[in-house]
């Protein structure tokens, strides 16, 4: 069986599409992320990834995050 590699959103290069596996942070931060659309199974496209922040697209909206927040989003390769 092929091994599924889970990474955090901060590690995803620009142009890659991923799916949210789960959120790993304080419940309040997780709920805020969910309200922005970073829900389990949501599809995310990484637009740009700098040295400490990244821009991604979720629910057709562009969102900016810093690495502390992006590290709370654990993602899987997307099938889309």
């Amino acid at each position: 069986m092929p091994q599924i590699i889970m990474r955090t959103l901060a590690e995803i290069p620009a142009g890659t599409t991923v799916t949210v596996s789960h959120l790993d942070s304080h419940p309040d931060t997780c709920n805020r992320l969910r309200e922005f659309g970073f829900c389990e199974n949501a599809t995310i496209r990484c637009v740009s990834n700098g040295s400490s922040q990244l821009i991604c697209e979720v629910c057709n909206t562009r969102v900016g995050l810093n690495y502390t927040t992006a590290n709370a989003i654990v993602v899987l390769p997307s099938h889309e």
């Binding site: 992320l33 821009i55 562009r62 900016g64 995050l65 810093n66 502390t68 927040t69 709370a72």
Partner: peptide, 11 residues
């Protein structure tokens, strides 16, 4: 602590 940063970037 420094808060988590998440912000919508409008088109």
């Amino acid at each position: 602590p420094t808060p988590a940063f998440i912000m919508e970037l409008p088109p």
